[in-house]
Design a protein around this nucleic acid. Structure first.
Lengths: 301, 301
DNA sequence: AGCTATATGACGAAATCGCATAATATTGCG
DNA sequence: CGCAATATTATGCGATTTCGTCATATAGCT
């Protein structure tokens, strides 16, 4: 699959014939015909029915048109941003920190209460983002430090100190039958509504594989991208979630319990900063406040 | 620009060397080197500085990594959908919705409980993002609908229906002296620690101007980017915030009160979707469930 | 010196794409 | 209605471009 093929799909749907599409794209008719044939072969799908020498879009074409458009828009945006980059555009010390969304409610405020006591003159900017975004913000030097999940390489220019760890747990409502178990495996989750996070990320794919090996089809009801929302959905009886105990510990106040999910999978969490650059005293102190708060939040009850 | 080049960019940023990237991608090192050189030539940008035989990502690379990832994810989604179409088992319909982070705790779950009652077979994917990100996700067709704050133009291809409104209020701790006032102006906030959001955004700049006209210097202690974290910081005594009543109403359970901030400023909130494309029945129903939940959340007590 | 890393020359294989054309369908006209 | 003209798609063929590996030069680090 390549970008030009997708452009052909889009233009064919818009013009109605290979000849018109070819003219619009500055290609020959046969080139368009071939690109279509290639796309169909690559996808192993018939996108256009050949009816009396005419191309009639199939339902599949219509369905995939949106995705194709999505790709092309993303490509355009990248090109546009590159263009911007080619053409090229101070107060109290500000310390910027990136945290996962799941930490805004109690963790972050408690950390800041602790911190501000000793650093009343510092202005703080908090960003609640995904691990990927935090990684990027550190790399871009937008933030001074970022708390993130350590998965794979973070890339050069970033130093990550491990500050916490967790293991996969299954979060279930307090009054759920699964709450009676000491541990929960994929087999226990057959036909159980699931609330899963991190679709297509490495750890999620590992979880998907765990289910596959157990021969259990996941009955996913909700896909979401934050641990906080997953826990809240569980608390509202929408299903059960599988997340790291690190995050589950942040939501002890909800009417949910968590049980180890087996086979055991562990997670590491770190504090990222740009490597080769020493943190300011204020930033270092915020880093320390974060670590203190982590210890508090992960105490075993 | 082609897809493999973008994969190279991603993998290089992730692994840190052409050799590791080559191994990860099943290519030769020289192939990776060439693909990178091609991408740089295509974009007319230097994505990696060549420093002592090493590749060091430039700020440009970091900036474009997000876009590249966006393209690759879109490609993956398309391939995934094509796979579903081939196997004839596209599985349950998925409806994707974008919401502000501030809505994960009670709003989103309540909305979904309401929705799933009538649509038990639909899989839902929730994204909690900023207005900017939600705008983008709608544009990219990643999500079907997105709730966002209407400010300025949303861009072509997006239709926005207004579904709620609010006015600026000052959120203060219950036991704060300012809680005794019927309304609060900038003058009341002289030398008061402030927790402000939306730095550099239009509404924030308007607020900054209000303070300036009142001759009051803002004593900003915390900059953050979500209404939820701002409210939580207030509840922890870290300062007072100025946000829309719409969001303040979502946090009535916190030990805070809110008072109209004068002069009065109002906000509009809307539901965005790609224009020209009718919503599926399932997506339309989720849209309706969202509206119902808005009404519930904004009831005057 | 040994090892690691990136870039590039040389080369062969594969892919791309236009020209030309075959086959089929539709339209216009007598 | 029959036929010519026109429109449409697909495919053979050849020229050109692209892709990717092997081999190797160069540079840096320990």
């Amino acid at each position: 699959m390549n970008i030009k093929q997708l452009e052909v799909l889009r233009t064919l749907l818009s013009t109605g014939s290979t000849i018109a599409a070819a003219k619009a794209m500055g290609l020959s008719q046969s080139g368009v015909s071939r690109l279509l044939a290639q796309l169909e072969a690559d996808l192993s799908l018939t996108l256009f029915a050949r009816d009396k020498g005419r191309l009639i879009p199939t339902p599949e074409a219509a369905l995939l048109a949106g995705d194709a458009e999505s790709v092309l828009l993303a490509v355009d945006r990248m090109a546009s941003r590159a263009e911007d980059l080619r053409t090229g555009a101070s107060g109290p010390e500000i310390v910027r920190i990136g945290l996962p969304s799941s930490m805004w409610e109690n963790f972050a405020p408690a950390m800041l209460v602790d911190y501000i006591r000793d650093f009343p003159g510092v202005r703080i900017e908090t960003f609640f983002e995904t691990t990927t975004a935090i990684n990027r913000l550190v790399e871009e030097r937008v933030i001074d430090i970022g708390f993130l999940r350590m998965e794979g390489e973070t890339g050069p220019g970033i130093a990550v100190d491990k500050v916490a760890s967790g293991e996969s747990v299954c979060v279930v409502p307090e009054d759920h039958p699964l709450a009676e178990l000491e541990e929960i495996s994929a087999k226990n989750l057959r036909n159980v509504p699931l609330i899963l996070i991190g679709r297509q990320r490495p750890n999620r794919m590992a979880l998907d594989q765990t289910f596959k090996r157990a021969g259990v089809k996941q009955m996913v009801k909700i896909e979401t991208h934050t641990n906080s929302s997953a826990c809240s959905y569980v608390a509202h009886g929408l299903g059960v979630a599988i997340i790291s105990s690190f995050y589950a510990n942040l939501y002890r106040h909800l009417p949910v319990v968590h049980r180890p999910f087996v086979p055991k999978a562990t997670q590491a969490f770190g504090l990222a900063r740009a490597s080769g650059i020493p943190l300011s005293i204020a930033a270092q102190a915020l880093s320390d406040a974060l670590k203190r708060q982590i210890q508090l939040s992960q105490r075993v009850q």
